[in-house]
Amino acid sequence: MNSQQWSLPDTNPSIPSVARMYDYLLDGRDNYAADRTACEVLLREVPSMKDLALNNREFLRRVVRHLADERGISQFIDHGSGLPTRDNVHQIAQRHIPDAKVLYVDNDPIVLAHGRALLGNNPHTDVLQADMRDTKGIFDHADSSGLIDFHQPVAALFVSVLHCIPDRDDPAAVIRNVVDRLVPGSFLVICQLVSEDSELRDSVTAFMQRETQGHWGRVRQRHDVRGYFEGLDIIDPPGLVEVSTWMPDNELIRPQRTFEWEEWGGLAKVPA
């Protein structure tokens, strides 16, 4: 993939952004009226959306903590990281490994500005404005900056982002491109929005395509997500699950009121 292939979005407050919509659902402040309106429309169709977003963030915390504390992983690339919010990846990882390295990647220019302001002079983190499909550009930046040592295991995170990639760009191929560049013993965290209700999949996909002016892929099915893990060793238990049930450990998990859709996925290791 060539970095010139992907056009990065401009900051336009009148066009909803997936990153800013997610920020709104997490009770953040870095969103515009268009983002809030789009979320309210979706909440009428899928009332569980806010619960799902909050549980997804808790999943991210648990899986990063597991990787750092129990697997000894000290390098992370967070694809489609979104806006900084409560307990970011570097904060979680560095509680267990103080010099853990984290590269945040997002194509939204607001993420770049807010991320750099948050990180300040933290020498073990960086924020890159790039499209997550641009594996070569991302890995070249991480390598040339000296932040990530690709001779050592890395955790590549794709948390609630692959539904932003359209079928024509083959999200499974994006995962394969990443796996091909990682040493055995590396890990991938993958989950995305899925639904077995074809009418909901089509309506939400059409709405998000229209509202974001094409910066969206589609809601998929569980079997699509299983395909992302082909050739990887899935950590089982717990296997591939609705993410609020992935190694649950505290009272912050919110019961999802309805299950028109869900965040579904898990953790896998790059085999030898």
Rank of each mutant, 00 (worst) to 15 (best):
P255V: 09
E211T: 02
R222Y: 03
I234N: 06
P237F: 08
F229C: 11
R210I: 00
W216L: 02
G231N: 11
R210S: 12
G217P: 05
Q221V: 09
P255W: 01
H215N: 10
D197W: 09
T205V: 04
T245E: 12
S195M: 13
R257S: 14
G227S: 15
D197Y: 08
W216I: 06
R226H: 15
N250T: 04
R210M: 07
E242S: 11
W261N: 07
W261V: 03
F207R: 01
L240A: 06
I235E: 13
S203T: 12
E196R: 14
W264S: 03
D197Q: 12
D202G: 04
Q209E: 06
P238N: 07
R220Q: 08
T212M: 05
E260G: 15
L232D: 13
I234V: 15
E262G: 04
R222C: 06
R226T: 10
H215Q: 11
E211Q: 14
T245F: 07
V219K: 03
L240T: 05
T212I: 04
S195D: 12
E230L: 09
P248K: 01
W261Y: 02
D249W: 01
L232Q: 13
D197K: 13
D249C: 09
R210Y: 04
P255D: 13
M208R: 00
I253L: 07
F207H: 09
F259L: 10
V204W: 10
Q221G: 06
Q221S: 09
V219W: 02
T205C: 04
S203V: 05
H215A: 12
I234M: 08
G227Y: 11
R210N: 07
R257Y: 00
R257G: 15
V225M: 11
D202C: 06
H215E: 07
F229S: 11
V204L: 12
S198V: 14
R210C: 00
D197H: 14
R254T: 13
E242Q: 11
I235D: 10
M208F: 04
W264N: 02
R220W: 05
I234T: 11
L200N: 06
R220V: 12
G239I: 02
H223L: 05
P237L: 07
R218G: 08
D236Q: 11
D236E: 14
E251D: 15
P255T: 12
M208E: 05
R210T: 07
R210L: 06
N250E: 04
L232W: 14
R222I: 07
I234S: 05
T212C: 05
P238H: 09
S244N: 02
E199K: 13
